[in-house]
């Protein structure tokens, strides 16, 4: 009887010890992955002596919150934030609006050349800004949009990826809903924004988040178009902090980190709130 008991229990025990190993490994890897972000926070609260000390200070006993005022004094940091927010909102609005309209046209619309135009849209996914930036730059310079919001916005005003994802989602909505809405006297735009969008809410949220992140974290194109300090976006602006302390750049890493931390806070907030949508959204994209 006792023999029997151990025979039953032992595989269970093996599974349990396997789980403990798994937990330990997972925690170690998570710590490694979070460490750079922890280090950013920790450094941003240190004094100059602690940053430059030969001894490693993991967490300052007296957090120096005053470091966070530095970016605002040294560079027009508030202006960077405002610029970034404005451009991001512009891009989100146009990408979503154009994306939703086009996605409806490509999923439910009836017109000749629909397939051809959709292939045109898909083909655009293969052409990155890293290839097209020279002619775009020349055009922007010629029409006088250098150093303007419009100049930054235009390169990201529409996204074929957005159209594609929304179209895939709109395809799953049954035609009868639209028919019913039409019978009840609802117009085309009404059925798009009051039926399709609410019914595909998860995808629309995911796409909105992707465009938000894309706008907020954009670096390559704003760096080319914006040469005036006051019009910088955050990603380009924080680079200015690196050289804001004269020759000895390392001496003020506590202040640089404070600036970097401030620039990524909005992303943290959005990630914390919409985390679930982001994860599911990427999975959806991969399955298509």
């Amino acid at each position: 009887m006792t023999n029997n008991m151990t025979a039953v229990r032992s595989p269970h025990r093996r599974i349990k010890s396997g789980l403990i190993v798994r937990y330990i490994l997972a925690v170690i890897i998570t710590i490694i992955m979070v460490f750079p972000l922890f280090w950013m926070l920790s450094t941003s609260l240190k004094t100059e002596q602690q940053v430059m000390s030969s001894r490693l200070v993991f967490w300052p006993t007296a957090p120096q919150w005053v470091n966070f005022s530095y970016p605002f004094q040294k560079v027009p940091f508030l202006r960077y934030m405002l610029n970034t927010a404005l451009i991001t909102i512009m891009q989100m609005t146009s990408e979503l609006l154009l994306g939703i309209l086009a996605a409806y046209g490509f999923s439910k619309g009836k017109f000749h050349g629909k397939h051809f135009l959709f292939i045109v849209v898909l083909g655009a996914m293969m052409i990155p800004i890293q290839v097209t930036f020279i002619p775009l730059y020349i055009v922007i310079a010629r029409i006088g949009w250098m150093n303007t919001y419009l100049g930054v916005w235009i390169a990201g005003c529409v996204s074929s990826y957005t159209i594609f994802l929304l179209r895939q989602s709109f395809m799953t909505v049954d035609d009868s809903y639209i028919e019913a809405a039409r019978v009840d006297g609802m117009g085309k735009l009404g059925s798009i924004f009051r039926i399709m969008v609410p019914m595909c809410k998860p995808t629309v949220i995911t796409v909105a988040l992707t465009t938000f992140m894309g706008g907020w974290n954009n670096y390559f194109w704003p760096k080319i178009i914006i040469k005036v300090q006051d019009m910088y976006v955050l990603t380009v602006g924080v680079q200015r902090l690196k050289t804001s302390y004269g020759n000895d750049a390392t001496a003020n890493y506590h202040q640089i980190m404070a600036g970097v931390l401030l620039s990524v806070i909005p992303v943290f907030i959005v990630f914390a709130i919409f985390q679930r949508h982001m994860l599911s959204g990427f999975t959806k994209a991969a399955m298509k």
Partner: peptide, 29 residues
């Protein structure tokens, strides 16, 4: 099938902008 100009106009702005900011630069390149 019944042809709807309105559906065509829904996709037109997006397609035109895509042509402008991705295809045209390649030709220009």
């Amino acid at each position: 099938e019944k042809y709807f100009w309105s559906d065509f106009f829904l996709v037109l702005p997006a397609v035109l902008l895509l042509l402008l900011v991705t295809y045209y630069p390649v030709a220009e390149l």
